[in-house]
Simulated assay, not measured.
Amino acid sequence: MQKRTFHFLSAFSTIFLLCNLLSITSMAQSKPKTIKVMTYNIHHGNPPERPGVIDLPAIAAVIKQHTPDLVALQEVDKITKRTGQVDQLKQLAELTGMFYFFSKGIDFEGGEYGVGILSKYPINSSNRYPLPSKAGIEAEARSLAVIHVTLPNGEGLHFACTHLDLNNEHRMLQIKEINNLIGRKKADVILAGDLNLTSSTPAMKLLEQYFTRSCTDNCAPTIPQDDPKEEIDFILLKKGTKIKVISHQVFPNIDASDHLPVMATYQLP
């Protein structure tokens, strides 16, 4: 009789343990997944307080410290004389262990200068789109980098990076083009970059026809890094998606560039 009781209790304990394990596994699987997105104007890897110095490991250290899944980078050199003929984005990808895509803005000092993307996820596809400027007004060529990745929830995401012109007339044309290229996509899109404008400008209002900023109230400034006064670096999510913003952060007291890095965390459906 005692043996039967022991076997019964042992079997009951095993069943109880299995039920608990299944419950824990189910909770883990149903826990909402998140992605972290960063935008960072890296000033071609030059800390502003150290003229002539190129310190890519400092930029990589910032990225690694905050562990973003996707990073939009601006002011990136590729094989230029200024930065020692280094492919900066490739080196940052190696230092951070991420995939990468470069999008040229202009030819510069024997190489190229533009924007780039780092991704924790393999890049399914990538495209470079030149952005327009107004005829008759001097302008530095700008581009839009767009990649497509598969997120942890199995859904696809288009991630875009840009660095808009200083001139408002150019910016308005460039934002109209961005809206046409990715704002009207019937897909999830996140756009990030140095937009060279503040949130109250007409150009931002035009962009907000299709996108929502990761921060809309009491947002911290992003430039200059030593005494930030203006917010010109943004992360925006295309309207109509089930992805939701959880947090928005500007990381202070970082002197690796003349901009501060910005990161938004999103909850995936």
Rank of each mutant, 00 (worst) to 15 (best):
Q2T: 15
R4M: 14
R4F: 11
H7M: 14
L9F: 14
F16V: 14
F16C: 15
L22H: 13
S26C: 12
M27Q: 13
A28D: 08
Q29S: 13
Q29W: 13
K31Y: 11
V37W: 04
V37G: 04
M38S: 08
H43R: 15
H43S: 10
N46K: 15
P47T: 03
P48F: 09
P51V: 02
G52K: 05
D55C: 10
A58I: 07
V62L: 11
V62I: 14
H66M: 03
A72R: 05
L73N: 07
Q74M: 11
D77L: 00
T80M: 06
T80W: 01
R82T: 04
D87A: 07
Q88F: 03
Q88Y: 03
K90T: 12
T96Y: 03
T96G: 01
T96A: 00
F99R: 08
S103V: 05
I106A: 11
G114Q: 08
I117Y: 06
L118S: 08
P122Y: 05
L131H: 04
A135T: 13
A139S: 13
E140P: 10
E140I: 13
L144H: 07
L144R: 07
A145Y: 02
I147H: 03
T150I: 10
L151Y: 03
N153H: 07
A160K: 03
L164P: 01
D165E: 08
D165A: 10
D165V: 01
R171C: 08
L173K: 08
I175R: 05
I175P: 02
K176N: 13
N180M: 06
L181N: 04
I182T: 04
I182D: 01
K186M: 07
D188E: 11
L191H: 04
L191W: 01
D194G: 00
N196M: 04
L197V: 13
S199Q: 14
T201G: 10
L206Y: 04
Y210F: 09
T212H: 10
R213H: 12
C215A: 09
T216S: 09
P224G: 01
Q225N: 13
E230F: 14
T241I: 07
K244Y: 04
H248A: 05
Q249A: 11
F251Q: 01
P252N: 06
A256T: 06
L260E: 02
P261S: 03
V262N: 00
P269C: 02
P269Y: 02
